[in-house]
Design a protein around this nucleic acid. Structure first.
Lengths: 355, 355
DNA sequence: AATTCCATTTTTAACGTTACATTTTAACGT
DNA sequence: ACGTTAAAATGTAACGTTAAAAATGGAATT
């Protein structure tokens, strides 16, 4: 900018005004400025310097604890991001994707957060004890948390996972099922191999969503006289069809055979169904399978998936709006629980042998 | 930072060193600094100021000409973004999503580009004459273009659309089809209602991908003695199932009826199939439908879709890598054509009445 | 002719860092 | 005590912008 100012013998403020408040600069001079800028290869005010001066970047950060590529594998996460994008775009803000997974040491992980040039964060589904969250909070920027963790005084968006899980368990209990298995995604940090999670592992859960859903299943099964300690919970580290198949392979060898598998996500459930089919089991005649999330594919898969519906896009949009509201220093609710509801489709039915 | 320095009676450089080159500051002082920082609520060096000083942001921008939410609707675009994310993450960079669609005037649209605090751009599938591209180039930042436009001296990643389209057309001609229809996405800016695009419209195409695919179809059909001017090309502004159905409704009223519909994307093709089914036509017995892109759903839809496969994730990853390479001032190829191949599945077959 | 007014332009002073060069301090051997 | 060396800390000067207030100059008003 200085070059343009000197070339024309005007002050740098005039250049700034020409770009930011055109009406304050006479038309002839303004045109001259743009022309000279073009000639000198000046592309307009530097956004970084402007951000420093104005003390705002106009950027919202979405914080993930896993590599970004994981986020694009799961339809539910993509829909969430779409919602956030809608909200921030409407507010004229850009969107930065921040992944805290680069290094493995707490410090390295946190550095992604420390280095993010943003006005605020949307924290997406991170473990209670993950240093990323602490790092984000330490920046003292407006922050909204989606799904987990649930913290005092930090705006939150999510569903009542425990209640939704109870609804699903009740549905299967009502159908008459008695031998259950669960396919879970991460219960806590991946410091062990995937496999059956004993009650000790379950009690040490740091992922609140996982904890809540398992607690919901447990409450209903126990109430129906089915001891939770007899229900195998297979823990996968991630949420994909491939992992669901792996879990199913382990669970379907149980004897006597399970009649119902509760999966903590649709992706896992779809994988279970594939594995079951390969073993010659038909769903839901031989085995009922339930999912969670209601991704678009759940409605078109064969059989279509019984699952818990939640509006991921709206959740993202709400998170984005809450962040924008905070940036505008508007007062907001601290906790927004979105509705979730059981969607019964074709993947669940009466257990084999029932009338 | 100044506050921390004053509190401890040290210089600001010492604070800076404590964070950036810990080994240069004595351990005791370093600890004192972190402790005081914590107490005073100083969260470490401000990324914006650092970016200004270092003259780099460590951020890559992905430039879209449509609202971001559109990008999340199309699996092909999500996969592309996943690829870009993988590459930038590996290089330790963050990712900014930049949408140029906020205002409608060229200046307003360009402002999103002018205001993006990034080290470089990945331009994703934008019209030849869109001011966004010009704006991005004017910033003189390293830039990679994916799909379109194809510009001199700007690194490019994409497929040979014309050749891929020829392959698809040839497949259907070889099956014996003679009455074709085309469902296209945007040919040029949406300055008119969707509908049949006459040859004048087709000649004024500003979207190079559309132009190339149509040209590929035309070449093969003409060579087979089927005059292109008799082939109805329905132009949709966007790429979704809903738009595909709309197009099908128009095309399937033709008399004599078409036996094959070439869609420029899988989404459009899937919509066409839905509409055809609703009319009681069976695919491929009564009507062959072809897509383009090979999104995951193409393999599982019923019938599975004959389409052109391209690796969107790899395309994104390559774009990201090229950008990173430019930022490191490494030499790169200017044009990377990725392979594409015809994938014949169940949605195409011999025309009705053929042996 | 003096006064007021307005549009236009300038001055000044940060915003929070860090590269580079330099100075201070501590530690050591003779 | 003295010079030598390495370690630790500092001073200076940008990076490119803009908020706020002040200055300029000419036209309109009295």
């Amino acid at each position: 900018m200085t070059r343009v100012a000197e070339e024309l013998g005007v002050s740098s403020m005039t250049i700034s005004n020409a770009y930011n408040r055109p009406e304050r600069v006479s038309e002839s001079l303004r045109e001259q400025i743009f022309e000279t800028a073009e000639r000198l290869g000046y592309a307009g005010p530097d956004p970084v310097a402007r951000s420093l001066r104005r003390q705002k970047t106009n950027l919202a950060g979405v914080l993930y604890s896993n590599p970004l590529s994981y986020a694009f594998d799961d339809a539910a996460q993509v829909l969430f991001l779409k919602g956030v994008a809608t909200a921030t775009e409407e507010a004229g803000m850009g969107l930065v994707l921040v992944a805290g997974s680069v290094g493995s040491s707490p410090n390295e992980r946190a550095s992604a957060v420390m280095d993010a040039a943003v006005d605020g964060f949307v924290v997406y589904s991170i473990a209670d004890d993950d240093p990323l969250v602490e790092a984000a909070l330490r920046r003292r920027l407006p922050t909204v948390i989606a799904d987990q963790p649930l913290l005092e005084d930090v705006p939150f968006v999510g569903i009542d996972n425990e209640s939704a899980a109870r609804g699903m368990a009740r549905h299967l209990v009502d159908l008459g099922h008695e031998r259950f298995g669960v396919v879970s995604f991460s219960i806590a940090a991946a410091d062990r191999a995937p496999g059956i999670a004993d009650s000790r592992r379950q009690r040490s859960a740091t992922l609140r969503v996982t904890r809540a859903r398992l607690a919901g299943y447990e409450a209903v099964l126990e109430a129906a006289g089915l001891p939770w300690k007899d229900v195998p919970v297979y823990e996968c580290f991630g949420s994909s069809k491939a992992l669901g198949r792996e879990a199913a392979d382990a669970l379907l060898s149980q004897d006597p055979p399970l009649t119902a598998i509760l999966a903590l996500s649709d992706q896992l459930a779809l994988g279970v169904i594939e594995a079951a089919k390969e073993r010659g089991l038909s769903v839901p005649e031989d085995l009922s399978v339930a999912g969670f999330d209601d991704v678009p594919e759940a409605a078109t898969s064969r059989p279509p998936l019984t699952t818990v519906h939640q509006d991921h896009t709206k959740k993202g949009e709400l998170a984005g709006c809450l962040l924008v509201a905070q940036l505008r220093e508007e007062e907001t609710e601290d906790t927004d629980l979105l509705p979730a509801r059981l969607v019964v489709r074709g993947s669940t039915g009466r257990p084999p042998g029932a009338s």
